[in-house]
């Protein structure tokens, strides 16, 4: 067996597959890119050729317009393509709509690059599928045993309880524009809340895109068109950057909530100025990460961005040959 690191290499531009001459989630514009999902630090503009799921490609088009790749090739989960003797397929990652793990096979070994992922059910995307492999490449955003996300239902109940308790205050919920916002909308609906939900303009495009993929969000309205009186006791979703922005001054006595895995740590929640921290994350928590490592059964583990040290330590304890890849350019804000 040819060692995987001889054909899949860490470079300043990201993970590079030499025989296939392609990058996975390159951090700068390249000739050929395979993209795991639509978040801006993984899907960047300006590549010549892009291979991804149709949803990820649609997200890139909506964000980058004519910069979203000269040639776009969509493949379905499970479909295999071959480039330069390298077999590539995509498996669901459960992170956001269209998110995929990249499964690459070459010279008798299989590497799974999982991108970002989570294991708990998400009503807006296909659940993660473990793929057995020789090398598993994992993120480590929440790779410390202090991160154990509570159930989504519990956190949504916290929000709805606060809405009932403060009927005069607009509940301004900060949520990342791709994935988190749409998942929250679905979760709030699933909890039985059927009043209108108001959106910051920056969330509109991607929410429409999700709706185009058949996801029903109920009664959504643009927050900019509402009067102050109308927004009292209402739920308003906005990107995290807008929480402390002048934009929020239009709201009646806003109560700031923030939906993110970082809300687990009080100091982090306070840094973000959240009065109502909602621990809802699109990334695997410690238990999900460690369970996944056991599920895929890979003898080798490469850890990308996040708290690599702890996960490497844990995996080493299981007898797995684990190391941290020094990939730069992936962010862990607002996860």
């Amino acid at each position: 067996m040819v060692k995987p690191e001889s054909w899949l290499k860490t470079t300043p531009g990201g993970l590079y597959c030499e025989p296939g001459d392609f990058y996975i989630d390159p951090t700068r514009a390249v000739e050929r890119a395979v993209v795991t999902h639509g978040h801006a630090d993984h899907a960047r503009p300006g590549h010549a050729k892009v291979l991804a799921t149709d949803a990820t490609l649609a997200i890139m088009r909506s964000r980058y317009d004519d910069q979203s790749g000269i040639t776009q090739q969509a493949i379905a989960y499970g479909e295999v393509v071959e480039i330069g003797g390298v077999k590539i397929s995509l498996a669901p990652a459960g992170h956001v709509l269209g998110s995929a793990q990249v499964v690459v096979e070459y010279a008798g070994s299989r590497v799974v690059v999982s991108g970002d992922y989570k294991r708990r059910p998400d009503p807006t995307c296909v659940p993660f599928e473990p793929v057995s492999c020789d090398v598993f490449v994992t993120e480590a955003t929440f790779a410390l045993p202090v991160f154990r996300h509570p159930s989504d239902e519990q956190e949504i109940a916290k929000l709805l309880r606060s809405v009932a308790l403060f009927p005069d205050r607009a509940h301004l919920v900060g949520a990342y524009a791709l994935g988190k916002a749409q998942r929250l909308l679905r979760l709030i609906r699933l909890a039985g809340y059927d009043r209108p939900i108001w959106l910051h303009g920056a969330l509109q495009n991607l929410t429409d895109l999700y709706a185009g993929f058949g996801i029903d969000f109920g009664d959504l309205r643009p927050a900019t068109e509402a009067t102050k009186v109308e927004l009292a006791g209402q739920i308003v979703l906005a990107p995290p950057g807008a929480l402390a922005d002048r934009w929020s001054r239009r709201l009646p006595d806003p109560l700031t909530a923030m939906a993110s895995g970082w809300m687990r740590v009080r100091a982090r929640a306070r840094q973000r100025g959240a009065e109502l921290p909602l621990i809802i994350s699109d990334h695997a928590d410690w238990d999900e990460l460690t369970r996944t490592i056991r599920d895929v059964g890979a003898p080798r583990l490469w850890v990308t961005h996040g708290r690599e040290e702890a996960l490497v330590h844990y995996a080493t304890g299981l007898g797995i040959e684990a190391e941290a890849l020094s990939l730069v350019g992936y962010e862990d804000e607002d996860s």
Partner: peptide, 9 residues
Amino acid sequence: VDPVLFELS
């Protein structure tokens, strides 16, 4: 708890 994981945390 594993002391290394505790210290890192």
